Simulated assay, not measured.
Amino acid sequence: MSNFNQAKYIQQFQKEKYDRCIFNVPKGKKSTIEKHWKSKGYKSLNAYVNDLIDRDMQGTPGIQVNHNKGIVAGNIHGDVSIK
């Protein structure tokens, strides 16, 4: 019989290949964010966040993040505020 443990294998692979970034949002905001990334066609929150970060770091025109009490992401069509 095999001693292969798939769950441990996956955990070890992820530990070696990925860094974890955990963030918190106010209660109730998670469902709003989930509806938004799904409406944009992303398959996961992780894919959405990684794409936003990559485009922001590359200086993609239309991606602008302003800081205030909520998250405000600007684009060429105006500001989108998630509070």
Rank of each mutant, 00 (worst) to 15 (best):
M1T: 13
M1I: 08
S2D: 00
S2W: 02
N3M: 13
N3Y: 11
F4K: 11
F4S: 07
F4V: 10
N5T: 00
Q6V: 08
Q6T: 13
Q6N: 06
A7N: 05
A7G: 00
K8F: 06
K8A: 13
K8W: 10
Y9G: 04
Q11V: 05
Q11K: 09
Q12S: 14
F13S: 10
Q14T: 02
Q14S: 05
K15V: 00
K15R: 04
K15H: 01
E16V: 08
D19W: 08
D19I: 03
D19H: 06
D19E: 06
D19Y: 05
R20Y: 08
R20T: 10
R20A: 10
I22K: 09
I22D: 13
F23C: 06
N24H: 15
N24L: 13
N24K: 14
V25F: 00
V25M: 01
P26I: 04
P26F: 08
K27Y: 12
K27V: 14
K27L: 14
K29E: 11
K29W: 07
K30I: 15
K30V: 15
S31P: 02
T32I: 15
T32P: 02
T32F: 11
E34N: 12
E34Q: 15
E34T: 13
K35T: 15
H36P: 03
H36K: 13
W37I: 05
W37N: 00
W37A: 00
K38T: 08
K38I: 03
S39C: 00
S39R: 05
K40M: 15
K40D: 13
Y42A: 01
Y42I: 01
S44D: 12
S44C: 14
L45E: 08
N46E: 11
N46W: 06
N46I: 06
N46Y: 09
A47I: 03
A47H: 07
A47W: 05
Y48M: 07
Y48T: 00
V49E: 07
V49K: 07
V49F: 10
V49W: 07
V49G: 04
V49R: 03
N50E: 12
D51M: 12
D51W: 08
L52S: 12
L52Y: 14
L52A: 12
I53L: 07
I53M: 04
D54F: 06
R55M: 07
D56L: 15
D56P: 04
Q58A: 07
Q58G: 04
G59F: 01
G59Q: 05
T60K: 00
P61Y: 05
P61N: 07
P61C: 02
G62A: 03
G62F: 01
G62K: 06
I63Q: 10
I63L: 14
I63C: 11
I63A: 06
N66F: 13
N66P: 01
H67Q: 13
N68P: 00
N68D: 09
K69S: 13
K69C: 08
K69P: 01
G70I: 09
G70K: 14
I71G: 03
V72I: 15
V72M: 11
A73Y: 12
A73W: 11
A73N: 10
N75I: 06
N75H: 07
I76S: 14
H77A: 10
G78M: 11
G78Y: 09
D79R: 08
I82E: 00
K83D: 03
